[in-house]
Write a protein that binds this DNA or RNA. Sequence first.
DNA 1: GGATACCGACCGACCGCTCGGTCTGTACCG
DNA 2: CGGTACAGACCGAGCGGTCGGTCGGTATCC
Lengths: 200, 200
Amino acid sequence: MSGSWRSFGDEPLPAPLAAALSAFAEQGYHGTSIRRIAEKAHLSVPGLYHHYPSKQALLEGLVTTVMQELLDRSGQAVEEAGPSAQRRFDHVVECLLRFHMHRRRQAFIASTEIRSMKPEVRDSYIALRDEQQRMLDRIVEQGVAEGVFATAYPLDASRAVTTMCVAVATWFRPDGELGPDQVVERYLSLARATVRAGSA
Amino acid sequence: MSGSWRSFGDEPLPAPLAAALSAFAEQGYHGTSIRRIAEKAHLSVPGLYHHYPSKQALLEGLVTTVMQELLDRSGQAVEEAGPSAQRRFDHVVECLLRFHMHRRRQAFIASTEIRSMKPEVRDSYIALRDEQQRMLDRIVEQGVAEGVFATAYPLDASRAVTTMCVAVATWFRPDGELGPDQVVERYLSLARATVRAGSA
DNA sequence: GGATACCGACCGACCGCTCGGTCTGTACCG
DNA sequence: CGGTACAGACCGAGCGGTCGGTCGGTATCC
């Protein structure tokens, strides 16, 4: 379906994951006790462990699904954009921005709790994250090769653009003064400038 | 002294702070036990408490000094730049970049452990951080007013530039393939592009 | 009656922190 | 110059409490 990467019907997380999400976002992984998560999920501690085998499994359940979703949406966004580097770039950046506004807490946890992941969880997360970065890298390189982007440092610019999009998750608030569409407009303009896109 | 904001003679931290720094950087605040810090400092637990009254005091000792130092250096950098918005911008960005390479672990902890700070520590840290942001905000606004920066969104561009400079602390490695001077050259170019500075 | 969904009670380990000391100086007194 | 007084630096042992996780159940549904 066209543009489906743009829409976020808020399918609810299972109660234990939703509880872990809000607790981790507030206190961090190590700062959150399993009892606090159980309490937020309206469950006893053994009740919680009936659904998830460990605290680490809760973190894993949050971060692997979220990165996979981002990757899927980005793939759709690029595919829909067609061959133009400019359009591909715009679509991926918009996708990154919308994702980090609508999934802000999951994305925030995934990027800040890397240290708390056990090696296998961390490795698979980083692999997905690198794949996401390379997707944008290739687009910027394509744009530079075609002469539509004029940056002298394509890979650094690509990383910088990703960084500023990801950082949106740290300050965006649904009830803030800027709505998602305004943020997309502004940050798309900034991202284009960073790679020195031809248009204004 | 001219350019003193550029030079980082590595004055060593007191042993307990150095130990806390490396432990917090590896495991995070809540993921680090006081015993682990004591071990790294070659001290017993009571020996550690002889120097610092609490675990929180170690965190405070790391984050308040580091933000104050950044603010001091930025002030010097701006002052040395004179009245030109372009030169002021360049100096502050270079200062941010060099700081986040040379003080990367302190800066990383300060920005990632905000949740772990007790309210008074957090409040004073955030006040310093905001002051740093406003310093760059005013420069970008000045540049836009004078017509040397063409960005349509000065405050968003200013935040984006800060974000990409701060993020350098998360990936820069002293033994990496890019040295500090190269990073400054590249990111200064990116930062100028982001605010649409007149020069190439 | 088996599977699913839970819970009260509990476990060993570890948490941040403190108690009651022991050292090694160093300063001053006679 | 020996002796006393004191302070800073440090530690073994252990405090009350919380941690992640588990055991042995019960209630409910198909």
